[in-house]
Design a protein around this nucleic acid. Structure first.
Lengths: 162, 162
DNA sequence: TATTGTTATACTCTATAACTATA
DNA sequence: TATAGTTATAGAGTATAACAATA
């Protein structure tokens, strides 16, 4: 089951990882320089810009891999006036995060540069057929990965009773 | 030039970033659990396993974005007995890094699990056509990104005189 | 008893600037 | 003067465990 990957699989794997590493680094530079926020913080803000209201657990999904990490980031965003955290009326245990006008304005201000970076680094080298193929492939891959159980029994998403 | 990305570009971008994030997290878990090393350290070891001898600058290429970061990682790897650093006879300024037998053994021990993670998370969801397309697309994207000049004038790869 | 979220803490990674030594 | 690399240091990110409050 764990033989060597085929050469083409290796090439795909390395090209994928290095490309995203380069892209992510460039995006992080832009966000930090233009808005003083990290990519993780940008992701959280972008999610809240779409759905307005999210509990901490919902907000964490797919972006952050530990609860304390999210609390830390949320605290920074709240301190910067970009989000608010209030108690949830439905479930007293939960905290509801929402983006502020300042946060919305920041996202709107950062978007053009963010888009420009991804365009010049990634999409400028892709044909329309490439784009279709990439979308299809990576969407399927993401769904597959999300459905995959974590390798270790001690996951932070679904902590077991041990 | 910086209009909104098309919806399909956005979908591709998000799927790409989230997939690699999930994959990288899984790979890091495996490497840390089975070998006690990080993904960056794994990449450095893997490069040295192929080419045996590399100067620090050559070794950094594409893996690490600052010289001091590489020095730090190299120090850790050296302390763990996984690589050696010796002066370069050709250029007295340079340091040549080489992998040790212990380092080679570690890479060989980690590879099956590493491959198994990437296979179960990524390649199991890909057809042969997908694999061909992905390889072609991401190889081209990587080459394009590598050729791209950094967005800011103050790059750490090509420090200017300011 | 399980879940939501926070806190405290420790560890790792990364980057900047100053420095040494060699080309 | 430019390059290769190290050092010191400071800042940010992340994770673990212990905890409080609610379901």
């Amino acid at each position: 089951m764990a033989d060597a990957l085929e050469p083409e699989q290796l090439r795909a794997y390395f090209a994928l990882m290095e490309s995203v590493s380069l892209l992510q680094h460039a995006v992080e530079q832009q966000l930090r320089a233009d808005g003083g926020i990290s990519y993780v913080q940008f992701q959280l803000l972008a999610r809240l810009a779409q759905t307005k209201q999210l509990t901490m657990t919902e907000l964490a999904d797919g972006v952050v891999y530990s609860r304390s990490g999210l609390t830390h980031q949320a605290k920074l965003l709240e301190r910067a006036g970009l989000i608010t955290r209030t108690g949830c009326p439905d479930d007293q245990r939960a905290t509801v995060a929402a983006i502020t006008d300042t946060g919305l304005a920041l996202i709107r201000r950062l978007m053009p540069g963010h888009i420009e970076v991804t365009r010049s680094l990634l999409f400028d080298s892709l044909s329309n057929e490439d784009l279709h193929a990439l979308t299809e492939i990576m969407t399927r891959a993401r769904d597959h990965m999300r459905a995959q159980p974590p390798r270790s029994a001690t996951s932070r998403r679904r902590p077991t009773t041990d």
